[in-house]
Amino acid sequence: MTDTASTRPSSGVEVGTEGHAGEHGGDHFLGHHFKDHAHQLNTAKLGIWLFLGQELLFFGGLFCAYAIYRSMHPEIFAEGHLFLDTRLGAINTCVLIFSSLTAAWSVRAAQLNHRRALITAILLTILCAFGFLGIKYIEYAHKIHEGLVWGASFAPSSEAVQHATEAMAHGASSTLTEAHTLSNRLHIFFSIYFAMTGLHGIHVVAGIFAYLWLLRRAIRGDFTQDYYGPVDGVALYWHLVDLIWIYLFPLLYLIH
C-alpha cells in the first residue's frame, strides 16, 4: 500500500465490480466505464479544467469592465483605492496564498496516503477560507457604514472622505495632490469593487462547502493513493480562486 507507483491492479483485471473496499481500498469508487484509476483521474481533471476555463471567462467579463473603465476614467481608480484598506487586502492575499499551499499539500497527502496530513491540510484550508471571509466582512461592513457603496446609493461620509484625504497627504498617491474634489463618477469604482470582490467571495463560500464535503469524506477514509480525484479537483478550483485574487489585489488596492 505504500508503493505509490505499482499498487494499481494490472490491466485486464475487473476491479469495478468489487462492492467493498478491500485490500485495494476504495476500488468501489472506480467507475465501471474507466480502465483504471489513472484513466478516471485524468478524465475528471480534464472536466475540472474545462470548468476552470469557463470560470476564467466568467470573471473575464468583470476584468473587461475594469479595464475599460480604468482606461477611460483613470482618476476614479486613483481616488477610489484611497478608500480601501491596503493592509487588510495584503493580509487577505497572504491568507489566500497560504490556503493555496495547504490545498496543494492536501493533494500531496492524499497521493501519499497520509490520511492525517490530508485531514489537517483540509482543515487549515477551511480555516483560511473563513479567515479570508472574516476580513472581507470587516472591510465590507466598514465600506457600507461609510456610504461607500455602488451606483446611486453612493454617499461617502465625511469621515471616509477625510481618511482618503489623509491617505492622499501621506503620499499614497501622487495623482491626487492637485485635485481636491472627488470625481462625480467615483461610485463606478465601488460598483466594480463590490462586483469583483463579491463574485470572488461567492467562490470562496462555494470552496468552503466543497472542502467541508472533502473533510467528511477524508475522515470517512474514502481517499487513497489510487482514488483522490475529488481532492485534486477541489484543490484546482481553490487555486483558481487564489489566482483571481492575485490579480484583484493589485488592481483594486495597489493603484499608484
Binding site: 507507483a5 489513472a38 484513466h39 483521474l41 485524468n42 478524465t43 493533494v107 500531496r108
Partner: peptide, 13 residues
Amino acid sequence: HTEQTPHQGAHII
C-alpha cells in the same frame, strides 16, 4: 490520457 499510465498519471510534488 491513457498513454501515461505507468506512474498512475500522477506526479507527487
